[in-house]
């Protein structure tokens, strides 16, 4: 009979090791079934968390062969097919503190989440006695972001977070900020937006890991784009990210292409660029990677580019 070999990362509070188990393959099962079978039939000391077993409580996310999944709604057959192997390596989510085996701690994340005031700051249009009126469209704006089950998959896979745990916010925290900022019942969107900006909102690397792995398909990167443009509307232009975005915007509008030489200067300012990027630029010039005397001309069809800008602006307004 076919067997699945599982290598599970164990941790007992002080030591970590990988332990191997073999489970007879069964068709049509889930990853949670696999973990439960190991625990109940082979090793009761193995720990992981699960509760609802139908993708609503957010307890059961783990990493399999380097990718985060919800264990309960991920078909085993799909994982075998995707990775084209019967050998599966299990690890706890990244970017979380681990208590034991595959079990992680959430409290520090919730303390961090408090920065964005993850609760409704009600407007004066409603009251505790009467509630609110809200249109169907207004409800639809908060429908997707309130699907979040706090499973941690996005945070585990976020490449910025992996290198910048202290500075950057978990995508699920950005989602909470977004969710309240766009709620028609919330009277203080800036209270949710400002802390997002102050926590390096512009550092998202656009790696798309969060949005492609979210088990609830929440459009996290669209939300990040929205947060950026809203903070710019708040007049928050005096930060690297916004300046970078404006530099892009202006260059392409003027010439139809990016002036890469000027981009760091516009983003970081002349002094900062001179101090940090000049040595690097000099090395690049030496190797012939950039030509400092080349200033980009307008591309052919610049009129079309500008028309696109006008159109985008109309659509946005």
């Amino acid at each position: 009979m076919e067997k699945i070999s599982c290598k599970i990362k164990r941790f007992n509070g002080s030591e970590a090791w990988y332990q191997e188990y073999e489970v007879p393959y069964e068709k049509g099962k889930t990853i949670l079934w696999l973990l439960t079978t190991i625990r109940e039939e082979q090793d009761p000391t193995l720990n992981f968390t699960s509760a609802c077993r139908h993708a609503i409580c957010g307890s059961c996310a783990v990493r399999i062969n380097g990718n985060a999944f919800l264990a309960c709604n991920t078909p085993l057959d799909e994982v075998i097919e995707t990775f084209d192997t019967m050998t599966l390596t299990f690890e706890p989510l990244q970017n979380f503190e681990v208590v034991k085996d595959l079990v992680i701690v959430w409290e520090p994340k919730m303390e961090k989440m408090k920065k964005v005031k993850p609760w409704l700051e009600p407007t004066a249009n409603g009251s505790k006695e009467t509630g609110f009126l809200q249109t169907e469209e207004e409800f639809h704006q908060i429908a997707a972001p309130t699907d979040c089950i706090l499973c941690g998959v996005c945070a585990s896979e976020c490449n910025q977070l992996t290198v910048n745990q202290d500075g950057y916010l978990e995508p699920f925290i950005l989602n909470r900020a977004y969710r309240f900022a766009v709620d028609s019942r919330d009277g203080s969107p800036e209270e949710h937006l400002r802390p997002v900006l102050e926590n390096e909102l512009w550092k998202c690397l656009h790696c798309m890991q969060c949005v492609s792995k979210c088990p609830k398909s929440i459009p996290l990167t669209d939300e990040i784009a929205y947060l950026r443009s809203e903070t710019m509307k708040m007049g928050e232009m005096n930060n690297q990210g916004a300046k970078h975005a404006y530099a892009f915007h202006d260059d392409v509008k003027k010439k139809g292409r990016l002036n890469e030489t000027m981009l760091p200067i516009k983003t970081d300012g002349l002094v900062h660029t001179a101090m940090t990027k000049v040595p690097f630029a000099l090395r690049m010039i030496k190797k012939g990677k950039i030509n400092p005397f080349h200033f980009p001309k307008e591309v052919e069809g610049i009129a079309g580019v500008r028309a696109l800008y006008e159109y985008a602006k109309e659509v946005k307004d």
Binding site: W119, L120, P122, G126, S127, K128, E129, T130, G131, F132, L133, Q134, T135, E136, E138, F139, I142, A143, T146, F180, D183, R185, D186
Partner: peptide, 22 residues
């Protein structure tokens, strides 16, 4: 009904009808 109003005030995203009510 008054507890539903309270939940609304707490930010529960209820589905809405054409009149904006729950």
């Amino acid at each position: 009904p008054s507890v539903i109003a309270e939940l609304d005030y707490y930010g529960v995203p209820f589905s809405r009808d054409q009149n904006g009510r729950i």
